[in-house]
Design a binder for these strands. Structure first.
Lengths: 210, 210
DNA sequence: TAGATTGTTAATCGATTAACAATC
DNA sequence: TAGATTGTTAATCGATTAACAATC
């Protein structure tokens, strides 16, 4: 699968489709049409069909897509058909809130694929503490821990000034995708993917429409 | 200014340019070229010029853009040249973390335009508590408070099941822009703008690249 | 003035939408 | 079969990039 050729917007919409299919009650006989799914996701039916067609032929003409099958296919495409281990770097209020949120959702539903397996901070008061069953390690243990637990997805929730440093360490240890909450553009090698979740940037954008 | 004609991506980049210009030390004589700004923001110089040209002629041929002036213009365009009051609905861990984050940044720098002026929750244990100088009100007080304080920007950090309800109330009280942390597509009238900050959705997208 | 960089037009690129033959 | 909906091609739309005359 030539990933470089899949537009980012398509990946985003696939994630939306999957979330919707997880919310809907799906019996074996439940078929979902591109019109229905489009309606729920807020996109055109043609868009839905085009997005899905990039990855295979999942539908049946005249009937639509079998809901359960499509849900499975989407999970497979997005690599969330198996548990995905996550490290959270930075155990401030935000990091702690994220850790608990993810862990609780994972515990509550086997449908929720993300599992927190490593937490890091530099504050001696935080190192050793346990958050939802996961111990907080010192940042210096990051490389070892990440390698040992084969973590490929990391959340960065440290202050802006430290974001690049912890990113470099995480990447060196094998992390391939990063969700960055710090308001800093991270420099990473081309094989590493970064998404930004920058609250201030979002607020600035929204302010434009006031 | 015909806002409907400004692509969303342009607004996002303007916010990025502004953030960068706030980070750079700018003397009165400091001029910034589209090449420089593009380099910092990770876009082409042509892109920078095109984005800015949508709103006016801010540069000088042969010289570039006067840094301080451009910063002011961008703040004006994004409506963050004055304080922007924000309400946060839902004082769970995430909501509380966001409230403190925004309030502290506002207190630390007069450059940071967002100010929290109202907090809401339904939990009697939280109502009455003060977070960084702002009292938590019961959700039932939302309409009154939002109207009284003329809040137009709100953050929704309640559980998914309540997100639509609190949104409806906020919109009825005059809110025009919403940053939604709940994993739900909100239905709002056309004059209301919603941005989504959905951690699980971001993680799903990133998992695709693993 | 000579050199540099803007603002803008034209060319390119890519994504969305429309349309329809294939087919369940 | 008749009706419905897919997968896919073609048409449209919009955003990005390139190029350059204007001009500081």
């Amino acid at each position: 699968m030539a990933k470089r050729r899949v537009p980012e917007v398509v990946v985003r919409r696939l994630a939306v489709y999957l979330r919707i299919l997880r919310e809907v009650d799906l019996s074996d006989s439940r078929f979902v049409s591109s019109a229905e799914l489009g309606e729920w996701a807020g996109v055109t039916p043609a868009q839905v069909r085009k997005d899905l067609a990039m990855f295979g032929e999942f539908g049946k003409q005249g009937v639509g897509y079998q809901g359960l099958n499509l849900r499975n296919e989407l999970a497979r495409i997005l690599h969330t058909d198996e548990i995905v281990d996550v490290a959270i770097i930075g155990m401030g209020e935000l990091g702690a809130a994220l850790a608990r949120y993810i862990q609780r959702r994972h515990a509550a539903s086997r449908e929720y694929p993300f599992r927190v397996v490593a937490l890091f901070d530099v504050d001696p008061a935080k190192v050793g503490v346990t958050v939802e069953g996961v111990g907080v390690d010192h940042l210096d243990a990051l490389a070892d821990r990440v390698r040992e637990r084969k973590v490929r997805l990391a959340v960065v929730s440290v202050p802006a000034a430290e974001a690049q440093l912890v990113t470099d360490r995480a990447v060196a240890a094998g992390v391939r995708a990063i969700l960055d909450f710090a308001p800093v553009k991270l420099r990473v090698p081309p094989h590493v993917r970064v998404h930004y979740a920058d609250v201030s940037l979002e607020l600035h954008q929204l302010a434009f429409y006031l």
